[in-house]
């Protein structure tokens, strides 16, 4: 069952990702991106990462994609004009991409035994021990061992605010 769900949503992710790049209207691309984010969330859930699955849905599919759509609509950008691409790029690029992915896949397959590669369901859970990706575990790590990176991230957000002030200021004309 896990494997079926995995292949189903993995396929959806890949198709949506390819569709996002191929679409020429920004709105269609953004909607495909929502598909990617949503099916990724399911993949996380399959791996037992409940917290990250929910965060993915709320933050990416929710907040960030809404912002994306706002910006696209505010800029009122239409479909990208069709550019004449060199056919040779397509002929060379597509097989090369397949070869590259094949080689990477082969390497990973060869290096890591198949039964250790993907474990569905909760990791390292047991009586009295919260699972690896559970909200309890994430919260515990976030406020104990990863306290400093967590707090420092706020500086990153402050910079974003400062940057918005600087780039949107009026004084210079």
């Amino acid at each position: 069952m896990d494997a079926i769900l995995f292949f189903l949503f993995a396929t959806i992710t890949v198709i949506c990702a390819i569709n996002m790049v191929l679409q020429r209207h920004p709105i269609s691309s953004a909607l495909s991106l929502i598909g990617v984010m949503g099916s990724l969330a399911v993949l996380y859930l399959l791996l037992g990462g409940e917290f990250i699955a929910m965060a993915q849905l709320i933050v990416y599919s929710g907040a960030i994609m809404v912002l994306f759509l706002f910006v696209i609509m505010l800029l009122n950008s239409g479909a990208e004009p069709k550019r004449s691409r060199h056919k040779i790029l397509l002929f060379l690029g597509a097989p090369l991409l397949v070869i590259l992915l094949g080689v990477i896949g082969y390497f990973i397959q060869g290096q890591i035994p198949a039964q250790e590669m993907v474990k569905f369901g909760s990791w390292e859970s047991g009586p009295g021990k919260p699972a690896f990706g559970s909200p309890q575990n994430v919260g515990m790590s976030l406020f104990t061992s990863y306290l400093l990176p967590f707090e420092i991230t706020s500086v990153l957000i402050l910079i974003a605010i400062l940057g918005a002030i600087v780039l949107a200021r009026k004084e210079i004309d």
Binding site: L162, G163, I165, R169, I172
Partner: peptide, 10 residues
């Protein structure tokens, strides 16, 4: 004419 303190904040 860009004497705004945000520069130093950044």
């Amino acid at each position: 004419d860009a004497q705004i303190g945000e520069y130093y904040g950044l």
